[in-house]
Computed example of a mutant assay.
Amino acid sequence: MPHAEISSALRLFYTDDGSGDPPLLLVHGWGADSHQWSWHLDALAARHRVIAVDLRGHGYSSVPEAGNTPRAMAEDLDTLLDRLDVPEVIPVGHSMGAQVVSILAVEHPGRVRALVTLDPGYGMSQDLAASFPGMIAGLRGEHPHAVAEEIDRWCTTSATPAVIRRWHKRRLYGMPPHVLAEAFEAMFTAPGAIGVRPASDDYLARRGCPVLSIWADPERAAWEAGLLRHPESKVVCWEGSGHRLHEERPAEFVRVLEGWLRTLGKASGHGEGPGSADAAAGPFV
């Protein structure tokens, strides 16, 4: 499996399967890696070129001593696509990965044909954000992995399969603690972070491409629907799912994604506006 030389100090692990333009770029969440897409790779690669990458500090990629932030990760992806001679992609990002691909879409709009975000790591309320400094302190404390495990409990419900719980717990305990702390802080509390409202609103409104966003929380789904400007954008809500909803419902995720991709560039003829959703996708905003 290949690594790409992003700089003299950074190599990114990635896989590259299938064919079809524009390719899909799969971007995992905080404390995970590209194995997160094992539930979906075969189905997606049957119709598309699919590039699945380990972000800096994660998986089989290099672990910088500093700079493990969503903005740096987005720049890494831009460089990776240059290395692969891929001019345009449809990035698919989960959680922190949704921040990363949204930054890619804003800062490199010519690179992104359309965008897919899965239970994104943005749009947090100020009330929820009040707990983040304590979490970050814990991630920098004596037992960072135990703190990360406690944070991760928010990601599951009683219906989350045990194999998903176990995989992510094991992956978190394999993560470098400084990456967990630095990336979490950069998402939510550091200067320039876009994870908490109103910073989320101001930055995400700059995405000019079509966006498909799938949420577990109806309130945050409705909030993002109000930000989307492109008429081909859709927001879907699977209320009751866990944070890793695409892992819990892999076949449904692939079906919704493929259905939306087939609509891109076509006039709907139904007068749908930004933020609308297909009823067949489940509960929606």
Rank of each mutant, 00 (worst) to 15 (best):
P2W: 01
A4P: 08
E5N: 05
A9Y: 02
R11P: 04
R11D: 15
F13R: 01
T15P: 02
D16E: 08
D16C: 08
L24A: 11
L25S: 13
L26E: 12
L26A: 11
H28S: 12
G31Q: 12
Q36D: 13
S38P: 03
S38A: 13
H40D: 11
D42A: 10
L44T: 13
A45P: 08
R49A: 12
V50S: 09
I51L: 05
I51N: 02
A52R: 07
G59E: 12
Y60T: 08
Y60G: 06
S61C: 07
V63H: 04
N68S: 10
N68E: 08
T69A: 03
R71T: 05
A72N: 04
L77V: 04
L77T: 06
L80C: 02
L80H: 01
L80K: 00
D82G: 15
R83W: 10
L84P: 09
L84T: 11
D85H: 14
P87R: 05
E88A: 12
V89P: 03
V89C: 06
V92G: 09
V92I: 08
A98D: 11
A98N: 06
V101G: 13
I103C: 06
V106D: 08
H108C: 06
P109W: 09
P109H: 09
G110N: 06
V116T: 09
P120V: 11
P120T: 14
L128K: 03
A130E: 15
S131K: 01
S131F: 13
F132T: 15
G134K: 00
L139K: 06
L139M: 10
G141V: 06
H145T: 12
H145Q: 13
E150Y: 00
I151G: 08
D152K: 00
S158A: 14
A159S: 09
A162R: 00
V163N: 06
R165W: 07
R170M: 10
R171Q: 14
M175W: 07
P177D: 09
H178R: 08
E182M: 01
A183L: 00
E185W: 01
T189F: 04
A193V: 10
A193F: 05
A199K: 04
S200T: 15
D201R: 04
D202G: 15
Y203N: 11
L204F: 12
S213Q: 06
W215L: 10
A221Q: 14
A222T: 15
W223N: 15
R229Y: 11
E232S: 10
S233A: 13
K234M: 03
V235M: 08
W238I: 06
W238P: 12
E239G: 03
H243W: 05
H246G: 11
E247L: 04
E247R: 00
V256E: 04
G259I: 09
G259D: 14
L261I: 04
R262G: 09
T263H: 04
T263D: 14
G275F: 03
D278W: 00
D278E: 07
A279G: 07
A280Y: 00
